[in-house]
Design a binder for these strands. Structure first.
Lengths: 220, 220
DNA sequence: AAAATAATTTAGACAAATCTAAATTAAGTT
DNA sequence: AACTTAATTTAGATTTGTCTAAATTATTTT
């Protein structure tokens, strides 16, 4: 019922990776967790023994239903702390992730539920990602990526699908954050880069790599 | 500069124990931390190598100046979280210690300083213990124990010098907490027990053991 | 002061989480 | 289909924090 910090980091990372691709590979996980493939294999055996994981040697892995429940619990803690840090302690958008990485491993249920109530049961964290409720339910939040929005249509940045310091840094520099209104003006076929408007009148260019990590909702 | 959860628990416990007696013994520490004497010896060697501890085999140990600084940092985190839990999340007095034991090991300095500011730089935690400031300074808080107060003098409970669940439970049952007004009415020489008044008119008896753990300030 | 007892330390082992290097399996290529 | 390459797993070692059992040192008692 209680997992080590290390186990939790593996579970959480598998959960995120398996959203994109159905199954997660040893090398992918090792890369994401900055560890070695051999270490991943060791941990996979342990998580399989605890029935959190479907895993056959050389076949990749997916979380079981139990594993996903554990993952959602961790994600709930992470996002509630992010909300707390931004909303109450006035951390900036790009600082909260790192601190929440530590706080998320304090797994006292009463603490988290009281924190949730204190914050007013927020639905989304400061990056626009949905916060699972006490039962582990999470909003589907059908988001579109920037390259998919039609030209000349004003819309709203609702999240980023990558929490690396590098991307947050770049977005900060370009003055793009949750809630920024953007509009795609032109699409360059050569490199799939985009010319977009941010805010009222600023015109900038962004790369395909960046555009694909910007999540959009249409409520604008 | 960064210590493991285990190291921090040793450091913190030594700090508390050496306040009472000048020097701390292996068995004392093992008892307090619910571990074995041999484990204590192992850790003492490690902490000595890190220059946090004065230690010669068979001679007991004390924290160095550096060790005390580390301890005060941990205590600061612990007490700020206790304050947060009681004040903001509405945990009761007797629940906060256990949860803070986990939170205290998240050692992000910016987090703690921002938390401090958010809480309005509180001077005392919910048990009445002083909270070290960002520089590690702590109020001396010259407290007296209940057996030492003069008869028929109304005074104020300002803390408890023992955080065990048992004592908190007993105090809860006797309706004594921080801020309760008490007055010693009679002292029984046979067993050093006291007859005291709590609140406006309740008269109860308390044992010497309990009385010695109740800290008093005269501001009443 | 010698003997008995208690406290402390050492020696050797173990579990968790990691690593490197070697072996194995799967996938891609000619 | 055989060969090459890439991915994965196994084997064996390391570090941290713990343990038990035995050895050592300190303290207390007679």
């Amino acid at each position: 019922m209680n997992y080590s910090v290390s186990e939790e980091n593996y579970i959480k990372t598998i959960f995120h990776l398996q959203k994109k691709e159905g199954t997660v590979t040893t090398n992918e996980l090792a890369g994401e967790l900055k560890t070695r493939p051999a270490s991943v294999t060791d941990m996979m055996k342990k998580l399989k023994a605890k029935k959190l994981l479907h895993y056959q040697p050389y076949q990749g892995f997916r979380l079981t239903t139990d594993g996903s429940k554990v993952a959602l619990g961790i994600i709930r803690r992470h996002r509630l702390w992010e909300y707390f840090l931004a909303e109450k302690l006035k951390f900036t958008w790009d600082e909260v992730h790192e601190v929440a990485e530590e706080l998320e491993h304090v797994s006292n249920k009463k603490l988290i539920d009281k924190l949730d109530a204190y914050l007013g049961f927020p639905k989304k964290d400061p990056h626009g990602d949905p916060i699972p409720d006490a039962q582990g339910k999470i909003e589907s939040g059908k988001k579109i990526r920037l390259p998919e929005v039609p030209l000349n249509t004003s819309c709203l940045v609702s999240g980023v699908s990558n929490q690396s310091g590098e991307i947050l840094d770049l977005l900060k520099h370009k003055k793009i954050s949750i809630g920024t209104v953007v509009e795609v003006r032109k699409r360059f076929e050569f490199d799939q880069s985009l010319e977009i408007r941010t805010g009222k009148q600023t015109i900038i260019n962004i790369s395909r790599e960046l555009a694909e990590n910007i999540l959009i909702s249409y409520e604008a």
